[in-house]
């Protein structure tokens, strides 16, 4: 019991450090609290406008659901995202990691503890955002079962984000310049995480039975458009981004409906965690070998 407490206390120290680092810059702290609301506002107005034009619903989704999607999605994604990827890449490149290998704790554990610490403080900062989300998007309150599933999904999403972030950081070690990788990752995430469009919309647009009410590009035929969107949806499921961001919110809003669908999605999240964790562990081992032989 004693040694466990000791182990724990090591990591709590890191968590506290994480918290302190956020509080150190008070203006930053304020900025982080309020300015993201700007993003939310724009999303809100954009989609309100879109839904109004569409008479209250787009495909099979009605505006209340989509607003809920945006609001809850906003909060969840901010809560679950993990900003350590570039930091880890940097530490690996400049060899600072080597110093940490000499110490009696796991590097991953340390980063995770810091991450937890930062998120703990983040909960404070998220309160104003929460308020705005509640007032603005007036999310639909889901039933108990959905809450449970959402919570579970959120937890998985949190872990998945961390593992993915760590993987990217480790992967970046082998790439000469990380910038391009980051941009591609951001672009893919934007499209395939449900940020741009709820993933279910991809499938609804691509659905064979429904005809499109309007064709924006006159020289393209309908079936190829449908095929394209369907393909986008499929690609989304081949990438981890939807598991990182879309799934929890999809569950909450009912876009992922029914016990089977929910269970499947949770399973997919879990599978991604395992897969990426494995990949990460492998890469990390190789990176460590490289560092200890070559010295960073």
């Amino acid at each position: 019991m004693n040694s466990f407490a000791k182990e724990l206390s090591k990591y709590t120290g890191f968590a506290v450090n994480g918290m302190k680092s956020i509080l150190a810059y008070r203006i930053s702290a304020l900025a982080w609290s309020f300015l993201p609301i700007l993003f939310l506002l724009v999303q809100y107005y954009l989609w309100m406008g879109i839904f109004q034009a569409g008479g209250g619903s787009l495909y099979r989704i009605d505006w209340r659901t989509y607003l809920t999607y945006i609001g809850i999605g906003f909060l969840s994604s901010r809560f679950t995202n993990c900003p350590f990827d570039m930091y880890i890449a940097g530490e690996l490149k400049n060899g600072n990691v080597a110093m940490n290998l000499l110490k009696p704790f796991s590097y991953q554990g340390m980063i995770f503890a810091r991450h937890l610490g930062e998120k703990a403080v983040y909960i404070l900062q998220i309160l104003p955002m929460l308020l705005v989300v509640l007032l603005l998007t007036r999310p639909v309150i889901a039933d108990g079962w959905t809450w449970g599933a959402w919570g579970m999904s959120l937890l998985l999403s949190f872990l998945l984000n961390f593992v993915f972030s760590f993987l990217i950081g480790t992967f970046a070690f082998w790439i000469t310049n990380v910038w391009g990788l980051g941009l591609i990752r951001n672009a893919l995430r934007f499209v395939f995480s449900g940020d741009l469009l709820a993933i279910s919309l991809f499938f609804q647009i691509g659905e064979k039975g429904i005809t499109l009410k309007n064709m924006p590009l006159p020289h393209v035929n309908e079936s190829s458009v449908k095929g394209f969107f369907h393909l986008m949806g499929v690609i989304a499921y081949c990438l981890p981004f939807q598991a990182m961001f879309y799934t929890p919110t999809g569950i909450y809003t009912g876009m992922i409906r029914g016990t089977r669908a929910v269970a499947l999605h949770l399973g997919i999240q879990f599978a991604w965690i395992v897969l990426l964790f494995g990949g990460c562990a492998l890469l990390w081992k190789r990176a460590m070998k490289r560092i200890t032989i070559m010295g960073g």
Partner: peptide
């Protein structure tokens, strides 16, 4: 490529929206 994709994404969004409304 990344930036092109992001541009394309917004185009895609508009396209998707305009499949339903004029």
């Amino acid at each position: 490529l990344g930036l092109l994709v992001q541009q394309f994404a917004t185009f895609l969004l508009m396209f998707a929206v305009f499949t339903q409304v004029k």
